[in-house]
């Protein structure tokens, strides 16, 4: 490689770092500004502490209640994870059936949409009534709120599979199952992960909402308790914790996507 080439590459890398900085800087600066305003309002005494706790109080609450928060998080995360796993399985089975059988699509699709229009806050107490105060109603609610984005993503992905690629496989004498495994499923992977990203963030919120409305442990229960005690510093601490957990889950899905779909990160004509 001559010096001109390496110079070009260095320039390219520089540009990449620049763009990554340029990409994230506005969001970071924005967040810092919001926290500063929040701090000014509360520490400056413009808004009383019982209405809006200061960021300092929130951090203090987070630190003092850390063990409790971790205990409740583990419960909520377990519910979210189990619900999400069942949701994924359900979505895959439904999408495959609906793609394969037109009648299945016609029968299931409206029901699927209806499940998404029911407010979770309304259905959660009913699930508690049916299934008790344990984990079952929470997991069920997570399943209901997570399977839909994945199922819809998969269905779109299956439908968008390249017709010519399917013809190619048919001309090789492929069976329907082989066409599904070699063309349709891999073609739908991108859509699957896009759906999973949404579902992963729904899963935690779903578990928390279900815990709100009946239960003995979990972040939702913790939230209800601190709300009743008017401990808004703790309330804010748990909200921030839920945000962090959701973001981490989304990052996890992105990592998984990278590992499962390595071809997405290959630059054109890289040799």
């Amino acid at each position: 490689m001559n010096s001109g080439d390496s110079g070009f590459i260095r320039k390219g890398k520089q540009a990449e770092e620049d763009s990554s900085f340029q990409k994230h800087a506005p969001a970071v600066i924005n967040m810092i500004v919001i926290v500063l305003i929040w701090m000014g309002l509360t520490e400056g005494g413009i808004v009383p502490g019982y209405m809006l706790p200061s960021p300092v109080a929130v951090v203090k609450a987070f630190v003092t209640d850390f063990p409790t928060l971790m205990y409740h998080s583990s419960v909520s995360l377990l519910e979210a994870a189990l619900g999400l796993l069942i949701g994924i399985a359900l979505a895959i089975v439904m999408a495959i059936l609906m793609d394969r059988f037109r009648t299945c699509y016609r029968a299931l699709y409206p029901v699927m949409v209806i499940t998404q229009t029911i407010p979770t806050v309304a259905i959660a107490p009913i699930l508690v009534l049916w299934m008790g105060f344990g984990m079952a109603p929470k997991i069920t609610l997570v399943v209901i709120s997570t399977f839909f984005p994945i199922a819809v993503g998969l269905l779109d992905g299956f439908a968008e599979a390249d017709k010519d690629a399917i013809d190619l496989l048919r001309s090789m004498g492929a069976t329907r199952k082989q066409i599904f495994l070699q063309i349709k499923f891999p073609s739908a992977l991108g859509q699957f992960f896009s759906g999973l990203k949404i579902s992963a963030s729904y899963s935690v919120v779903g578990a928390v909402v279900a815990e709100w409305l009946g239960g003995f442990k979990g972040l939702g229960v913790y939230m209800t308790r601190v709300r009743k005690a008017y401990s808004f510093d703790k309330m804010f601490a748990v909200i921030i914790l839920i945000v962090i957990i959701s973001l981490l889950l989304i990052a996890l899905v992105n990592l998984l996507r990278r590992a499962v779909m390595p071809w997405e990160h290959i630059r054109e004509h890289e040799k």
């Binding site: 390249d162 010519d164 690629a165 013809d167 190619l168 496989l169 048919r170 001309s171 090789m172 004498g173 492929a174 070699q182 063309i183 891999p186 073609s187 992977l189 779909m261 071809w263």
Partner: peptide, 26 residues
């Protein structure tokens, strides 16, 4: 189908398979 091999108009290399997997697919 499956008796004569047929190369369709596009190259139809499946983007998610390595070349060896694409080529040995039939």
């Amino acid at each position: 189908p499956g008796k004569i091999s047929y190369m369709l108009q596009k190259d139809l290399m499946l983007p998610y398979k390595r070349i060896i997997d694409n080529v040995s697919l039939p």
